[in-house]
Design a protein around this nucleic acid. Structure first.
Length: 142
RNA sequence: GGAGUCGGCCAGGCAGUCGCUCCGUCCGCAUGGGCGGGGAGGAAAGUCCGGGCUCUACAGGGCAGGGUGCCAGGUAACACCUGGGAGGCGCGAGUCUAUGGAAAGUGCCACAGAAAAUAUACCGCUGGUUCUGUUCAGACAGGGCCGGUAAGGGUGAAAUGGUGCGGUAAGAGCGCACCGCGCGGCUGGUAACAGGCGUGGCAGGGUAAACCCCACCCGGAGCAAGACCAAAUAGGGGAACUUACGUGCGGCCCGCAUGGUUCCCGGGUAGGUCGCUUGAGGCCUGCGGUGACGCAGUGUCCAGAUGAAUGGCUGUCCACGACAAAACCCGGCUUAUCGGCCGGCUCCCUCC
């Protein structure tokens, strides 16, 4: 994958780029090991909430952010509902990854997420990404 | 045309764009990238049955336990399917049935009722005898005692089969006819069973998804099975021979394995690879069969993920899109489901 120039935090309201190759989602940007998840759960530097999900993040030693999902059966009872939530979340992350700092992020589903329409979920995620970027930029400048 | 019934099929379409995964191929030292192709379901679900596959002992005998339950066939197998029988429902096409045995035994059956099973007499009906009353007498009415009677009433889910005629003091399979039931031949059918003949006065409630009896079937565990490569760490592993005693063996016993001796060999947790998709596959054609299905031929490769892929956005059209997503693989069953299409058959109405 060619190195994509990382956008600065000043242009968050700009439309997301849709050019080929700019926003891919290969395996290396996913959290794949149980140890990775444990690291995020225990490290927990950043924690953001809305009514449908919780977002945990810790800085990593890589050049790019990584995403992990934890949607339990309790939160979304059917496999179809769980898959829908994962897809919407991955899709949103795919578009926003170039603006995020190098962080390991885990998104946890909360009660009520299975009843949420995909479009609302996408909007909510967008707000969370912006908040995360701002929070991270603020703490790193201190 | 309407109503119904049975069976089969589909499960938003198209275009653009940004992605994911697998395979092939090319480029690159490599992380990767280009091109081409494949990428959820009719139920993928529930995990309720049956098999394959793997290991255990290539699973053997007995007991225990479990399953199935009209007959025949299909199948790898089944609790499935097909055809048939019997019974129920429907005018019909059709449909439903855990549909073997209740005279092998045991258990249970509220309330009601005289009695619920070596039967029995509450109200009745009726014979004899005796007393009282009425009466010239015969006779009639009422009461007591000794009997007969299961026809009628009443109870109940069920009371020694039902209807009719004869018969009788009144009654009764007491006798007869028909129906039902049991038994024995016969005929048809592979069989379940059906038909018919003879015979017996009748053999007597329900419950076997209560125990049970009879017939047939079934070892156990599951892809986190299991095999291989292998950091850490640790001292074991394989083969042959032997088996008194101990220990172990996924219900128990028989039995089997192991500790013993000799010889040989580095081991195998994290992680990874394989298992993993070519199969009782699917399509089409022909033949056999009432059918489930079988046989033959042509041609085909049609998901294989592993924090877990098949999606997001935009446009457009319409009937405005349900239930729901593979996780070793098949065959079934059951349950969920917006709607649409096709065909067979039945009944009713109209027209010719």
């Amino acid at each position: 994958m060619p190195v994509v120039p990382r956008a600065g935090p000043g242009c968050l309201s700009d439309p997301l780029p849709l050019c080929p190759g700019a926003a891919r989602f290969p395996r290396r940007v996913r959290l794949t090991e149980p140890a990775d998840y444990q690291h995020v759960f225990k490290g927990g530097c950043y924690r953001l909430n809305n009514s449908w999900m919780t977002l945990l993040a810790v800085p990593n030693q890589l050049q790019y952010p990584r995403l992990g999902l934890a949607i339990s059966r309790k939160v979304a009872s059917t496999a179809v509902a769980r898959n829908r939530i994962k897809r919407v979340t991955r899709e949103s992350f795919r578009h926003w990854q170039t603006r995020l700092q190098p962080l390991d992020i885990v998104v946890l589903g909360r009660n009520g997420i299975s009843a949420c329409p995909a479009r609302d979920l996408d909007k909510a995620l967008e707000k969370l990404w912006i908040k995360l970027i701002e929070k991270c930029a603020g703490s790193s400048s201190n």
